[in-house]
Protein backbone atom coordinates (compact mmCIF):
# COMPACT_ATOMS: atom_id res chain seq x y z
CA UNK A 1 0.00 0.00 0.00
CA UNK A 2 2.18 2.83 -1.23
CA UNK A 3 -0.29 5.56 -0.35
CA UNK A 4 -0.06 5.04 3.43
CA UNK A 5 3.72 4.76 3.28
CA UNK A 6 4.11 8.13 1.60
CA UNK A 7 1.73 9.76 4.04
CA UNK A 8 3.83 8.42 6.95
CA UNK A 9 6.90 10.07 5.46
CA UNK A 10 5.51 13.60 5.74
CA UNK A 11 8.06 16.16 6.98
CA UNK A 12 8.85 15.92 10.67
CA UNK A 13 9.99 18.50 13.17
CA UNK A 14 13.72 19.20 13.01
CA UNK A 15 15.87 17.69 15.77
CA UNK A 16 16.22 19.70 18.96
CA UNK A 17 18.98 22.27 19.31
CA UNK A 18 22.30 20.41 19.08
CA UNK A 19 24.03 22.07 22.03
CA UNK A 20 21.37 21.06 24.54
CA UNK A 21 21.11 17.50 23.29
CA UNK A 22 24.91 17.25 23.29
CA UNK A 23 25.11 18.16 26.96
CA UNK A 24 22.32 15.77 27.70
CA UNK A 25 24.15 13.01 25.82
CA UNK A 26 27.36 13.63 27.77
CA UNK A 27 25.36 13.46 30.99
CA UNK A 28 23.59 10.25 30.10
CA UNK A 29 26.86 8.63 28.96
CA UNK A 30 28.56 9.50 32.24
CA UNK A 31 25.60 8.17 34.26
CA UNK A 32 25.54 4.93 32.24
CA UNK A 33 29.27 4.40 32.66
CA UNK A 34 29.08 5.11 36.38
CA UNK A 35 26.13 2.73 36.78
CA UNK A 36 28.06 -0.11 35.17
CA UNK A 37 31.11 0.54 37.34
CA UNK A 38 29.03 0.73 40.54
CA UNK A 39 27.18 -2.48 39.68
CA UNK A 40 30.38 -4.36 39.01
CA UNK A 41 31.98 -3.04 42.18
CA UNK A 42 29.19 -4.44 44.32
CA UNK A 43 30.89 -7.81 44.29
CA UNK A 44 28.30 -9.51 42.13
CA UNK A 45 29.30 -12.00 39.47
CA UNK A 46 31.10 -14.36 41.81
CA UNK A 47 31.47 -16.91 39.07
CA UNK A 48 34.03 -14.67 37.38
CA UNK A 49 36.31 -15.49 40.31
CA UNK A 50 39.29 -17.49 39.20
CA UNK A 51 39.24 -19.77 42.25
CA UNK A 52 37.45 -20.74 45.46
CA UNK A 53 39.28 -20.20 48.73
CA UNK A 54 39.56 -23.06 51.19
CA UNK A 55 36.95 -21.35 53.39
CA UNK A 56 34.47 -21.00 50.51
CA UNK A 57 35.04 -24.55 49.33
CA UNK A 58 34.47 -25.99 52.80
CA UNK A 59 31.37 -23.84 53.34
CA UNK A 60 29.77 -25.24 50.20
CA UNK A 61 31.39 -28.64 50.50
CA UNK A 62 28.17 -30.62 49.96
CA UNK A 63 27.18 -28.85 46.72
CA UNK A 64 30.68 -29.06 45.22
CA UNK A 65 30.76 -32.85 45.22
CA UNK A 66 33.64 -34.04 43.06
CA UNK A 67 33.31 -31.22 40.53
CA UNK A 68 36.60 -29.88 39.11
CA UNK A 69 37.41 -26.55 40.78
CA UNK A 70 40.35 -24.28 41.44
CA UNK A 71 41.10 -24.23 45.13
CA UNK A 72 43.18 -21.52 46.79
CA UNK A 73 44.98 -21.68 50.12
CA UNK A 74 48.34 -21.16 51.78
CA UNK A 75 50.76 -24.09 51.84
CA UNK A 76 51.19 -25.20 55.46
CA UNK A 77 54.87 -25.25 56.48
CA UNK A 78 56.25 -28.72 57.09
CA UNK A 79 53.43 -30.48 55.28
CA UNK A 80 55.08 -30.82 51.86
CA UNK A 81 56.26 -34.25 50.87
CA UNK A 82 57.31 -35.58 47.48
CA UNK A 83 55.24 -38.43 46.09
CA UNK A 84 55.98 -40.76 43.20
CA UNK A 85 54.00 -38.66 40.73
CA UNK A 86 54.08 -35.18 42.25
CA UNK A 87 53.76 -33.70 45.72
CA UNK A 88 51.35 -33.81 48.62
CA UNK A 89 50.79 -30.99 51.07
CA UNK A 90 48.18 -29.26 53.21
CA UNK A 91 46.66 -25.88 52.30
CA UNK A 92 45.03 -23.73 54.93
CA UNK A 93 42.35 -21.09 54.96
CA UNK A 94 41.42 -18.78 57.81
CA UNK A 95 41.28 -20.24 61.37
CA UNK A 96 42.54 -23.81 61.05
CA UNK A 97 40.41 -24.88 58.13
CA UNK A 98 42.61 -27.04 55.96
CA UNK A 99 42.53 -29.40 53.01
CA UNK A 100 44.97 -32.17 52.21
CA UNK A 101 46.13 -32.00 48.60
CA UNK A 102 47.68 -34.78 46.55
CA UNK A 103 48.85 -33.19 43.31
CA UNK A 104 50.23 -34.82 40.16
CA UNK A 105 52.93 -33.31 37.99
CA UNK A 106 55.88 -31.17 38.95
CA UNK A 107 55.05 -28.05 40.95
CA UNK A 108 56.22 -24.65 39.61
CA UNK A 109 59.60 -23.22 40.50
CA UNK A 110 58.33 -20.96 43.28
CA UNK A 111 56.31 -23.62 45.06
CA UNK A 112 57.32 -23.65 48.74
CA UNK A 113 55.94 -23.50 52.26
CA UNK A 114 53.88 -20.47 53.31
CA UNK A 115 53.02 -19.39 49.76
CA UNK A 116 49.46 -19.03 48.42
CA UNK A 117 48.70 -21.60 45.72
CA UNK A 118 45.79 -22.38 43.44
CA UNK A 119 45.29 -26.11 42.84
CA UNK A 120 43.20 -27.30 39.91
CA UNK A 121 41.43 -30.56 40.72
CA UNK A 122 38.57 -32.10 42.67
CA UNK A 123 37.71 -33.61 46.05
CA UNK A 124 38.29 -37.35 46.03
CA UNK A 125 34.73 -38.18 47.14
CA UNK A 126 31.58 -36.23 47.82
CA UNK A 127 32.31 -36.07 51.57
CA UNK A 128 36.09 -36.31 51.97
CA UNK A 129 38.36 -33.34 52.65
CA UNK A 130 41.13 -34.78 50.47
CA UNK A 131 41.73 -32.96 47.23
CA UNK A 132 43.24 -34.49 44.14
CA UNK A 133 45.13 -31.87 42.11
CA UNK A 134 46.12 -32.00 38.46
CA UNK A 135 47.94 -28.69 38.39
CA UNK A 136 49.49 -26.33 40.93
CA UNK A 137 49.63 -22.58 40.26
CA UNK A 138 51.53 -20.30 42.60
CA UNK A 139 49.60 -17.14 43.42
CA UNK A 140 52.16 -14.52 44.21
CA UNK A 141 51.28 -11.61 46.48
CA UNK A 142 52.01 -7.99 45.62
CA UNK A 143 54.64 -7.66 48.33
CA UNK A 144 58.28 -7.39 47.37
CA UNK A 145 60.95 -7.64 50.04
CA UNK A 146 64.66 -7.97 49.46
CA UNK A 147 66.18 -11.39 49.98
CA UNK A 148 68.80 -9.88 52.25
CA UNK A 149 66.91 -7.16 54.09
CA UNK A 150 69.79 -5.79 56.14
CA UNK A 151 71.47 -4.45 53.02
CA UNK A 152 68.52 -2.37 51.85
CA UNK A 153 67.40 1.03 52.95
CA UNK A 154 63.77 2.12 52.72
CA UNK A 155 62.96 5.40 50.95
CA UNK A 156 62.71 7.17 54.31
CA UNK A 157 66.23 6.09 55.30
CA UNK A 158 65.38 3.33 57.77
CA UNK A 159 66.79 -0.12 57.32
CA UNK A 160 64.34 -2.93 57.02
Amino acid sequence: MPSTETSELSPVAPPKSPSRSRWRSVGVLVVLGAAIIVLLSQGILHSLNYFETVDQALAQRSSLGTKVIRLEGVVKPGSISRTSNGASFVITGSKDRQVFVDAHGSPPQLFQADIPVVVVGHFTSSTSLDFEGTQILVKHTATYIAAHPKRVKAPNGTTR
Binding site: G43, L45, N49, Y50, V118, T141, A142, V152, A154, P155
Partner: peptide, 26 residues
Protein backbone atom coordinates in the same frame (compact mmCIF):
# COMPACT_ATOMS: atom_id res chain seq x y z
CA UNK B 1 39.67 -6.12 43.56
CA UNK B 2 36.23 -7.13 42.34
CA UNK B 3 37.08 -10.71 41.58
CA UNK B 4 39.54 -13.24 42.91
CA UNK B 5 42.24 -13.44 40.29
CA UNK B 6 45.48 -15.35 39.87
CA UNK B 7 47.04 -12.03 38.96
CA UNK B 8 48.29 -10.29 42.07
CA UNK B 9 46.45 -7.29 43.48
CA UNK B 10 47.55 -3.72 42.97
CA UNK B 11 51.24 -3.13 43.68
CA UNK B 12 51.40 0.64 43.56
CA UNK B 13 47.82 1.92 43.72
CA UNK B 14 46.79 -0.22 46.68
CA UNK B 15 43.50 0.47 48.42
CA UNK B 16 45.11 1.49 51.71
CA UNK B 17 47.76 3.65 49.99
CA UNK B 18 50.56 1.49 51.29
CA UNK B 19 53.40 0.76 48.95
CA UNK B 20 54.15 -2.95 49.12
CA UNK B 21 57.55 -2.64 47.49
CA UNK B 22 60.51 -2.01 49.70
CA UNK B 23 63.81 -0.20 49.55
CA UNK B 24 65.68 0.44 46.34
CA UNK B 25 63.10 -1.69 44.56
CA UNK B 26 60.53 1.02 45.16
Amino acid sequence: QWWKTLHQGATVFTSNRQLLVHGSMA
